[in-house]
Design a protein around this nucleic acid. Structure first.
Lengths: 198, 198
DNA sequence: GTCTATAGCAAGATAGAC
DNA sequence: GTCTATCTTGCTATAGAC
C-alpha cells in the first residue's frame, strides 16, 4: 500500500510469494491423478515445501481446487478472446475460437483440463461460483454459434453442446504426435460446414 | 459341476449370491462420488453387508471397478446391437445406435457412466483390457460412420470422434425433464446431415 | 514463511469366529 | 457367506518453534 518504491506487479515482498508454484503443482497433480487421489504432501513436495507450509497460501485442499479452476477459466477465456481479435467471417471466428480452446486444453493445459474434469462434489457456494464462471465462458460460444449461417431448422443449442463435447473429449484421444489443435479445429469445422458456404 | 438337478443360469446355490447387489451398489457409488471418493464401507452398506464381507466376492476395490466396467460395456454393446436390428438406411442406423448409446448413458446408466469416466490409473493389465473392450465397442461406430454418404473430403475419423465427444458429454448437461435420449440423437444427426439427403 | 510434530480420523484389507 | 475386530497406512489440518 505505501510501496512508493516498489516495482510494478509486486504488491508484497517479491522473494516470499511461492503461491504460483503451489498452484502449478496442484494443477499438475489434479490433472494427472485426479483431485481425490492427489495428496497435499505430494503437491507440496513438487512445489518445494512441506504440506503444512501450504496452508499459509490456501486454507484447505478444496480452496486449492477452486483457485486452479479460476485460473484455468481465466486463461482459456483470455486465449479465446485473443483469437477472436482477428477473423471476421462467422465460420472463421468459430474455428479460431475452437482452435484456441483446444490449444489451451491440449498443450500443457493442466489448468484447463482440471476445469473440464474436477468440480467440488458438494453443493457449496464454491461449486456454484465455478459453474457460473464456466457458464460465462460458454456464452462466448453461444454468440459464435448464433452468428453462423445455418438452415432455419438447425438446433443451435444442440450444435453448441455438440461442439463442447467434441472439444473437451479430445483429451481422451489426443496425442502430441498426431493432429495439432489447429488441425483438429479445422477438421471439426469442416465436418459441420459441409454444404453451406464455398 | 455335478449339478445334474440345478436349474438353468445357476452355477451355485441360488440363495447366497449377492454379487449383483454388490456390483449395483459399486456402480452407483462410483458414478455419484467417483471411484477414489467411494469407500468399501459405503458400497457394502448399500448392498446390505459389511465391508469385510465384500472381499468374498471381489479381491480388491480395483477388481470391483473392473467388474463394473465390464458389465457396463457389455450392456451398452448389447443395447446398441439390438437397436441396429431394425433400420436399414445409413443415417437411420447411426441415429438408432446413438439413441441406444445415449439411453444407456442417461437413463439410470450407472454402469455406462462409470465406463466413460473412471479408468484404473496405473498401467496394469486391468486397465489395458478395459481399453481394449472399449475400443471393440467403438468399432461398431466406425462401421456406421464409414457407411455414411459423405463428401469425399470429410474426415470420417474426426466425425466419429466428434460423435463420441458429443454423446458422452451429454452427461454434463442432460436433465431428465428436458430432451429424451432419442430427441438428442435426432438433433445431433440432423445437425450433421444438413444438405446431404432429403 | 517454512519447519517439525502430531492430532484425529478414515481408508483398504485381513484373520478367524460363527 | 457374513460377521467383528483389528492391522497398517495414509490423509487433512493444526500448533507452535524458529
Amino acid at each position: 500500500m505505501t510501496a512508493s518504491t516498489a516495482t510494478l506487479a509486486e504488491t508484497a515482498k517479491p522473494r516470499d510469494n511461492k503461491r504460483p508454484q503451489v498452484l502449478d503443482s496442484a494443477a499438475r497433480y489434479f490433472r494427472e491423478q485426479g483431485y481425490a487421489a492427489s495428496s497435499m504432501r505430494d503437491i507440496a513436495a513438487a512445489a518445494g515445501m512441506k504440506a503444512g507450509s501450504m496452508y499459509y497460501y490456501f486454507a484447505s485442499k478444496e480452496e486449492l481446487l477452486v483457485a486452479v479452476h479460476e485460473e484455468g477459466i481465466r486463461r482459456i477465456t483470455k486465449a479465446v478472446n485473443a483469437a477472436l481479435a482477428g477473423p471476421a467471417g462467422p465460420w472463421e471466428r468459430l474455428e479460431a475460437a475452437m482452435s484456441a480452446h483446444l490449444a489451451s486444453l491440449l498443450d500443457g493445459g493442466d489448468y484447463a483440463q482440471v476445469v473440464t474434469r474436477e468440480l467440488p462434489r458438494d453443493d457449496g457456494p464454491a461449486r456454484r461460483r465455478l459453474i457460473g464462471m464456466r457458464d460465462d465462458y460458454e456464452t462466448i460460444f453461444r454468440g459464435l454459434v448464433d452468428a453462423l449461417p445455418l438452415p432455419p431448422e438447425t438446433s443451435r443449442r444442440h450444435l453448441r453442446l455438440m461442439l463442447f463435447g467434441a472439444m473437451n473429449w479430445t483429451q481422451h484421444w489426443y496425442r502430441p504426435a498426431g493432429d495439432t489443435p489447429e488441425a483438429i479445429a479445422r477438421a471439426f469445422v469442416s465436418v459441420l460446414r459441409k454444404g453451406d458456404q464455398p
